[in-house]
Design a protein around this nucleic acid. Sequence first.
DNA 1: CATCGGTA
DNA 2: TACCGATGG
Length: 325
Amino acid sequence: MGNADLRDLASIRDVPFAELEGSVVAVDAHNWLYRYLTTTVKWTSDEKYTTADGVEVANLVGVVQGLPKFFEHDLIPVMVFDGAVTDLKADEVAERREKREAAEERKAAAEERGDAVEAARLEARTQRLTDTIQETTRELLERLDVPVVEAPAEGEAQCARMAAAGTVDHAGSEDYDTLLFGAPTTLRQLTSKGDPELMDLAATLEDLGLDRQGLVDVAMLCGTDFNEGVRGIGPKTAVKAVTEHGDLWGVLDARDAEIPNAEAIRELFMDPPATKVAIDTDVNPDVPAAREYVVDEWGVAADEVERGFERIAESQVQTGLDRWT
DNA sequence: CATCGGTA
DNA sequence: TACCGATGG
């Protein structure tokens, strides 16, 4: 499950926002939202982002605080939602559930002994995107006129294929799967401060002397979301081995190793389920409607979102003027 | 997910 | 060079 190994292999460089102006980015919505649910909620009380009915609304705050970054830099976000969980990922999902349950137990224990800080920290690990969260996020995005895409399966894959097809300029995600799914470029760190990072597929392949299939094979040897890696093989060894033995099968033969479902996983990375879509990039947020939804309909404290809405409105004025000059 | 200290 | 467990974000 360690695909952080890919960071060592990928060609990544910082790019100033100025170089990205006008770009359309297919953002993995789950990934993006998750950052806000773990960071925004983390150090605050549960009640603050929960309605009287116990409905989680931190996502709404996250969206309002997170989107201005795109608008202010003249980037057009396309939010891509996950579809069905891939069968192959069943193991991984089960593993996550176990981790989550373990974290929930520890959190309960922390609460028991009155350790609020520890409990809050663990809370972050037990968060997940409920149906309500997905639904209210979509409703808000609709009011902000942000394009939304439903992926047939992995959101990451859909983002990557949209980038590969030229439907968007870049994929946007914090992790590395988009590289394996074939995104020519992926923007990372769109949520944090400072300039984003651009992960470049062609440059990566050039550096490693591999083709895309070779890169997928390397990743599979190191371990991906869908398979355990081969014991004793890390990024360096994997590149050397694939170069030497030609492909995944050659390496597995030589080492007398096996990867369950290797054929299917390899195919999944090379040609993942994704749908062709057209994106309307003429985005005109209806800020009053969005504010009404968040504040009046869901009861989020106005001061939590006011600044975000202001920033969105201001950036619209800006780009509106730009269009006439 | 990133980083780190420590081990094999 | 890889693996592991811990930890902060």
